[in-house]
Design a protein around this nucleic acid. Structure first.
Lengths: 153, 153
DNA sequence: GCCGCCGTACTCGGATAGCACTTGTCCGAGTTACTATGG
DNA sequence: CCATAGTAACTCGGACAAGTGCTATCCGAGTACGGCGGC
């Protein structure tokens, strides 16, 4: 899995606390990340409708919606793409008694088992929102949002 | 995820039905796969203790244990490696108030959420064995094992 | 006829290239804020 | 003093290289079988 997933997840939490547009270079400096590369990743979130971007001075990235409506699955999918990790190539169709008219991706028992596992993974991620993460952190460190806002000044 | 996972899963099912060593070239021919590359993947299963290999004429690969004791997770792990897909780099340690002595991989809320999701995925795969897959296929196509044994004759 | 030995052919196993994707970087298009000027 | 047009600087956005891991292949080490010679 792309390393950018970790970056943008933490960045979404920070943006949730800040509440106004912040330029990518500053967001990257917070974790000492490659600025241009983080920018590239954030572009993907804009295309997915998770962030909004404004150009020019005083510009930057901000959350496009309420943190409570942004699931972790959405963020991961925006970076990794919607394709499942296990993609059945349907090799059963190449077996000696394979049938080209059958959709082996749908009927294959192995394909079904792998899909079921990935579904469990996605449901787990879809059950947590950015707001949930923020709440968990605040419960452990109440001063974190204010301290972060301060730093981004 | 590596495409070889699909190959070896189907191959394990076939080996479960055949019950004796089969050379990799023949196993590959069944699905029209690159023989040498499938061989390489099967080597990984041997190292993981899932298959046994015998050299020379009448040699080949065979299941090392009962199909009911081989989980899908074992097979996937043998190919993909034991490392989780999401590996937390602990970028929190690089934040302005980061602490080098803290294990952020363990405490980070985001890292925890991602681990939890992957755990659900692994439990789903660990709950199904190769024998279960065989049983599902046989229930749908009772003649499949015999037909497969015949082909490998 | 039977046993032991040798050669041969066949298989796995690891070492070796080729390719795709992730990672990382750069410069241009667009936009905003500032400034100077005129009313 | 205020409005306005021009200018300049700053930001995102997409196009452009480099590194890493998957994909694919080949040849060598080891082994079992079959044939052959000797007892």
């Amino acid at each position: 899995m792309s390393e950018g997933v970790e970056w943008v997840l933490h960045t979404c939490v920070n943006l949730s606390w800040i509440g106004r547009p912040v330029r990518s270079a500053r967001l990257a400096a917070f974790y000492d990340l490659p600025p241009a590369y983080l920018n590239k990743q954030l572009q993907a979130l804009v295309r997915a409708g998770i962030l909004t971007s404004v150009s020019g001075p005083k510009g930057g990235f901000a959350l496009a919606r309420e943190p409570a409506s942004i699931t972790l699955l959405e963020v991961v999918t925006a970076i990794e793409g919607a394709d499942p990790a296990f993609r059945c190539a349907g090799i059963l169709g190449d077996s000696p008694w394979g049938d080209t008219s059958t959709d082996y991706v749908a009927t294959c028992v192995i394909s079904t088992a792998m899909r079921k596992a990935e579904l469990a993974w996605r449901e787990e991620l879809a059950g947590q929102t950015v707001a949930d993460v923020c709440a968990s952190v605040e419960r452990r460190a109440p001063g974190e949002p204010e301290r972060t806002r301060r730093w981004f000044g």
